[in-house]
């Protein structure tokens, strides 16, 4: 008989204790978490970044990662793009009755390795179990705290005409890989770009004070982040289609599924707005970094406005809309 999650694992009694102590702590335990207090007690001095995110991806295992790894990297990346060194993470599990314990362990192991890689600690958490059919195997919420060193935050720097827009690599991989996974289409190269970004953003902010904005273009893709910048800072943006790096499989899949890679989610990418004067220093750093080898300057800030324009490969210009609908493929 296969070991599975039962409703009793969430009853707060003996079964819950066993699940936490014998499974979760085995993978994610540390001196703070193992105290099992109602709140974690931690000492932090300085300016703190604080973020939360929930993960509901389906399928829970995909090429290039799984929901566990995603739940750690996702929160690490939200801290990283703000210039915060990630320190502590909370994890909340919502498990569906019937989830195989083997799969849960695989997810926990994947979280363990992600936590280790990022040098953070899971210091508090929660586990709930819902009836079969009321969830989809597993949902995870993570919250992260990071500390921002003096002088490296980009927050508050002014975005101006002439600033450049950079992406650290090829776009659209995560979203399209999940879509193809759902369709059962597999090839060697189809893979999510899931990666933690703190090792890129923190050194970058240290070597250049010309970074003016960073955001990881997850749901809604690069196009949505650019529109958010245009609207939040009242600037017009123009990007150049020719400069946007896209892997061939992404390009092909996007044509077939009718999904523009600029709207497809990324999990290891950053949109950066920077002072043009710092261009050389930043690009050199990025291209020498494993997560930035394909970095490109994709466009620039054109002045006041609120729209994003795309210069097409044919030299024409069109508006690049914010994402309005669900990303579903067209049928004709």
């Amino acid at each position: 008989m296969e070991d599975i999650i039962l409703l009793s694992h969430g009853n707060g009694g003996e079964a819950t204790r066993k699940l936490i102590e014998e499974e979760i702590l085995k993978y994610l335990g540390n001196e703070i978490l193992e105290e099992l207090l109602d709140s974690a007690l931690i000492d932090i001095k300085g300016k703190i970044a604080f973020t939360t995110d929930s993960f509901v991806v389906s399928p829970i295992f995909f090429k290039g990662g799984d929901i566990g790894k995603l739940s750690i990297y996702g929160t690490i990346n939200d801290l990283s793009v703000m210039g915060a060194k990630p320190l502590y993470v909370s994890v909340g599990f919502i498990l569906e009755e019937g989830l195989s314990l083997k799969e849960f362990r695989k997810i926990l192991e994947s979280m363990r390795s992600a936590v280790e890689e990022c040098g953070v600690k899971v210091v508090t958490g929660d586990t709930k179990v819902v009836e079969k059919g009321k969830g989809d195997k597993i949902y995870i919420n993570t919250t992260g705290i990071g500390i921002i060193e003096d002088g490296i935050s980009w927050h508050g720097r002014r975005i101006e005409e002439g600033d450049i827009i950079i992406i650290n690599g090829e776009v659209g991989e995560h979203g399209l890989s999940i879509m193809l996974e759902r369709l059962g289409i597999k090839t060697e190269e189809i893979e999510s770009d899931l990666a933690p970004l703190h090792n890129l953003t923190l050194p970058l902010l240290k070597i250049s004070n010309g970074i003016k904005f960073m955001r990881d273009p997850t749901r809604g893709g690069v196009a949505s982040v650019l529109n958010e910048i245009a609207q939040k800072y009242n600037v017009e943006i123009e990007i150049d289609e020719d400069k946007i790096p896209v892997k061939p499989w992404v390009k092909n899949a996007s044509e077939i599924l009718g999904i523009d890679p600029l709207y497809s989610a990324n999990e290891g990418k950053i949109v950066i707005v920077a002072d043009k004067k710092e261009e050389k220093k930043i690009m050199e750093f990025l291209r020498n970094h494993p997560l930035g080898q394909k970095a490109q300057i994709i466009g620039e800030i054109k002045g006041k406005g609120k729209r994003v324009y795309l210069k097409t490969k044919m030299g024409t210009k069109r508006i690049l809309d914010p994402l309005k609908k669900d990303l579903l493929p067209r049928i004709c």
Binding site: T312, K313, M314, T316, K317, R318, R330, C332
Partner: peptide, 17 residues
């Protein structure tokens, strides 16, 4: 007539050419 033409004409900015 076709939505795909509409889409491609928009996407490549053919009107401007």
């Amino acid at each position: 007539f076709c939505g795909t033409h509409t889409h491609e004409i928009f996407r490549y900015g053919i009107r401007q050419l």
